[in-house]
Design a binder for these strands. Structure first.
Lengths: 136, 136
DNA sequence: TATACTGTAATTATAAATATTACAGTTTTG
DNA sequence: CAAAACTGTAATATTTATAATTACAGTATA
């Protein structure tokens, strides 16, 4: 699983944690121990998919555009990581009936598997994640 | 998903394809378009878990130790890729209640998710994979 | 108009995956 | 018995993927 997903969930959970004020990329980056530019790239994706809003300039930053109860981990996964479950396969080898088809065959198994996995992720919201973090 | 998994499935399917004779690492490597040493490493794992048997020396190679109907993709996954679904998380940050717990919280969500995904993989056997490859 | 931000592109550095080389040990076969 | 065809594994080199860093244009605030 790529790290965009966990950074996205981290960021959204942090925004849910302080719903009153915008969080800057620097603030989020320090919380997640990564570089601010990396956060801005991930949040750029979330913004494109309207999970957050951003405001430029002094005092700007990021806020949620939906209540945290209305955003699931599956929503986030689809934005940041769709398709990454797929196993890496070597190039197709036309000289071998196994090598020629394995990529496609495993591809369909994992594509369905991603949907199954998605149903699991869909059970958890950002609000749930915040609750789990705080009560620990 | 790491590539050990797809190489393992590829190898096992190839062994199922020619049940009569042992396959050498060179033969399998050519089918999968990768280096023989890499195949030997993956097959070493499968051997440790008794999914295959190997024979050294001239005319040696690898054979299945169970019928292909009795090996599922979940069996293979557990040997080659257990835990790889887990998203990469940055180090825990004790100064932030979100940063301090996110890794653990996501960890449990993905651990359960891996089991759900496993139930999906468990529906497919190596025999199924071979059938899918051949009828394409 | 200085300051604190976002947004992005380009570059550099680091880490992970993969290939390659090397060689010891094991069977088979001529 | 010796050459050939294998496995097994370690060590090294290469390639690729990730991540950090730098740079800078644009925007809102005070």
């Amino acid at each position: 699983m790529n790290s965009h997903f966990s950074l996205a969930v981290h960021s959204l959970t942090l925004l849910a944690f302080q719903p009153d004020r915008a969080a800057s990329s620097t603030f989020i980056a320090e919380s997640a121990s990564v570089h601010p530019v990396r956060i801005r790239k991930v949040l750029s994706l979330l913004k494109q998919h309207e999970l957050i809003q951003s405001k430029e300039g002094a005092g700007g930053g990021f806020v949620l555009s939906r209540p945290p109860e209305a955003v699931t981990l599956w929503d986030v996964y689809q934005v940041t990581s769709k398709g990454t479950l797929q196993p890496r396969c070597p190039d197709e080898n036309p000289d071998c009936s196994v090598g020629a088809n394995m990529k496609h065959v495993l591809g369909s198994v994992f594509s369905d598997g991603e949907d199954v996995f998605g149903e699991h992720l869909d059970q958890f919201t950002i609000a749930d994640m915040l609750k789990k973090c705080i009560t620990n």
